[in-house]
Amino acid sequence: MRAVRQIKQAKKGNKEALLQLIMADKDAYYRLALTYMGNEHDAMDAMEEMIVLLYERIHQLRNEEAFGSWSKTILVNVCKALLRKRQRLVLVEDLSESAEDELDSISRSRTSDPYKTSDQQMHLQELLQQLNEPQKEAIQLKYLHDLDYAAIAGLTEVPVGTVKSRIFQGLKKLRELYGGEADE
């Protein structure tokens, strides 16, 4: 119950407590920001903006248990606002140059067949690109960030049913695109 106390302290305006709350789960926040922003530089900017917003708004948080999804929703909104501001979409090209580079270099260092892996990732990103934005987002959050339906619903501000249908439809389309071999 340490987290709850830290949240209470953070609500009283304790900056250090807030910082420690984020640091305790820093990789998850960072990965989320990276997925949206596409590169480390912008992801870090988004996290800076997030923590300032959290600090300004945390006293409005009613339910301490919800800190995780609440703060992630704010992060996602910050990312989207930044992307909008820059009038820029994260396209396949961008991803292959930035985030993909990062993913590639990591996978290269760990797998025996780097070309195969990066090829596959490229393929996956390309496939995701064929989906509409909400479907792609929902699938990324569910499968790449391990969030449950309720959390995704909160993050994307739509009902749980919508999230489920987006994921279902998205997967269905991916399977179609992926070709016959996807049939079991």
């Binding site: 990789d27 990965r31 993913l103 990591i106």
Partner: peptide, 10 residues
Amino acid sequence: EKKNIDSITA
């Protein structure tokens, strides 16, 4: 893909 993402640290 998730495995790859999981290997990214802040």
